[in-house]
Simulated assay, not measured.
Amino acid sequence: MPATSPLPVTLTGGHVRLEPLAPAHLDDLFAAGGDDDEVWRWQGVPTPRTPQALEANLTSLVADASYVPFAVIHLATGRAIGWTGFLDIDVRHERLEIGSTWYGRAHWRTAVNTEAKLLLLTHAFEELGMGRVQLKTDHLNERSQAAIARLGARREGVLRRHRRRPDGSWRDTVYFSLLAEEWPEAKARLAARL
């Protein structure tokens, strides 16, 4: 089947629902992680100190035609607790990236990230027909690197001096990927972890 470009959809699991990111999520998102330096430390943008600053970030994501953003809704509370999405989409070469992910600190080291990634990866490989999904993070963000590796993604390498951080320093970026032929084993492992 030829690959198709992702569109805004709703993906639901047992712990989270991913739905198209919208301004209606703003209050929940700010309560979950706005003004928290540790949540925003690796995001590549300054910590949003006000709801208006977070709204500016959200608005730019929603307006970006090359990004398909999702609000991550915690099913137990019905509240938005972070966001994630598809970017760097290349249908011709059957690849995309999962990124710009953050969750409120209360949801770190819970089933939230595992299930959100399971939903996104399932959609990418099984419904969109992608052959490769990449993820990337700051080389200093060891927590994120460990989480990506737990998904079954393979570390591919490091792009040195890749992006400027909000503080002006330079970030090296670690790239990971998961291929379609690796997905069945990774999917079984992720499902077992849930």
Rank of each mutant, 00 (worst) to 15 (best):
L26G: 07
H139D: 10
T137D: 09
V68T: 02
W42K: 10
G104N: 14
R95A: 04
P23W: 12
R95G: 11
D64P: 00
A116W: 01
F30Q: 03
S66C: 10
V45A: 15
N141I: 03
P48T: 15
P46Y: 12
A124G: 08
A31M: 12
D28W: 08
G78Y: 03
L96F: 02
G33M: 13
R150C: 07
P48V: 15
W83N: 14
F70A: 00
I98M: 04
L96H: 03
G152P: 00
R143V: 02
L26R: 13
G152C: 05
G85W: 06
G34F: 15
P23Q: 14
G104C: 12
K136S: 08
A111F: 10
R41W: 07
L26W: 12
D36L: 06
V45D: 13
L61A: 05
H123R: 05
V133F: 01
V133T: 05
H123L: 01
T84N: 10
E97R: 09
L58F: 15
A76V: 09
E142L: 08
L87T: 12
T59F: 08
T47I: 09
S60H: 09
L151F: 05
T50I: 13
E126I: 01
Q52F: 12
A76W: 00
I98D: 02
K136G: 01
